[in-house]
Simulated assay, not measured.
Amino acid sequence: MSMDLTRSELEVGQVKPIRRQYVLLRKIWKNKLIMSGLTMVIGFIAAALILPYFVPYSPFATDFSTALKPPSAAHLFGTDNLGRDIFSRVVWGARESLGSGMVIVAIAVLIGVPLGLAAGYYGGWIDEVLMRIVDAGLAFPGLVLTMALSFILGPSFLNACLAVSIIMAPQFIRITRGQVLALRDREFVQAAKSHGVPTLRILLRHILPNATTSLTVACNLNIGHAIMVVASLSYLGLGTPPPFPSWGEMLQSGTLFLTQAPWISFAPGLAIFLLVLAFTLLGEGIRDEFDPHSKVKGN
């Protein structure tokens, strides 16, 4: 058997599971976008989990005698107007940013995927009602609706995540519905119906696995988007309240000292940029490598 296997061979299962896993890992390893994004994401996750226990200062400790100090050996990223170590706050803030992005997308998927499956598979009035709700939700600027929900719920980490999840869920409804519409009349689905396979099993075992590529790409891209939205809410005072370190709140506090101490905003701004870039590269790489409808290849 040739070492290079086609996508159709992998889809129909004409190779052994171990062989398929080897080919999958080989494709991931050779794709520069996937490896770049994956390396950066793993680096951020490792830093968020491990580094907080080794930072030299508490992210909450204030020392006015060292306020607005530039980057140095004692304070790698400098200090803010309250004398807090920016490096320590950026490291601790990584937990909030990563956690918010993953929690938001997880909630949006749990809301959107089941509704999208129902809309695409059953059609009729269920599809009409859900799609009109989705269209209404997507007709308004997402950030404005998120700000309104966050203001109503109150400023907190969980409320910000919930607000962004509700606004993001319609995207997953639409993506899942489109995949179901493309798959529900395929031969393997019709064969399962003719054999009396229950509807739930058809959706979970025959349709949903074939939609994983599009959903995985959407998850990675939306994690980056969610991180930016949560940072925006924190910047406006609608996210995680002080003194807990949040990259958006650090950006906001640094705007008052841009000419005097630009390093206060530079460090969290760069962290946001790199983290969003990491998930974007990972999502684009997965789409280029595994989406059969993609026109651009990452290799």
Rank of each mutant, 00 (worst) to 15 (best):
F157Q: 00
L158V: 12
N159Y: 15
C161D: 12
C161Q: 03
C161N: 15
C161V: 14
L162V: 10
L162K: 01
L162G: 00
V164I: 15
V164H: 01
S165A: 15
I167Q: 01
I167F: 00
M168I: 07
M168S: 02
A169H: 08
P170W: 01
P170G: 07
Q171E: 13
Q171S: 03
F172W: 05
I173A: 04
I175C: 04
T176R: 09
G178Y: 02
V180T: 12
L181W: 03
L181M: 11
A182S: 14
R186S: 07
E187P: 05
E187I: 10
V189K: 00
V189L: 06
Q190I: 14
Q190R: 11
A192F: 12
V197H: 00
V197E: 00
V197A: 08
T199H: 05
T199K: 13
T199S: 06
L200Q: 07
I202P: 10
L203V: 14
L203R: 09
L204Q: 11
R205A: 14
R205K: 15
H206T: 12
H206C: 10
P209N: 11
P209A: 12
P209K: 11
N210A: 12
N210K: 12
A211G: 03
A211P: 07
T212I: 15
T212M: 15
S214V: 15
L215E: 13
T216P: 04
C219L: 12
N220R: 04
N220V: 07
L221C: 03
L221A: 02
N222R: 05
I223L: 05
I227Q: 02
M228T: 03
V229R: 01
V230H: 00
A231Y: 02
A231P: 04
S232M: 10
S232D: 07
L233I: 09
S234Y: 06
Y235R: 06
Y235C: 11
Y235I: 12
G237T: 06
L238I: 15
L238A: 15
T240I: 08
P243N: 08
P245N: 12
P245A: 04
S246P: 04
G248S: 12
E249S: 15
L251D: 04
L251T: 04
Q252P: 02
S253H: 13
G254E: 00
L256W: 03
F257R: 08
T259W: 10
T259Q: 09
Q260N: 09
A261W: 07
A261H: 06
W263A: 14
W263I: 13
S265L: 01
F266W: 04
F266N: 00
A267R: 02
P268H: 02
P268E: 02
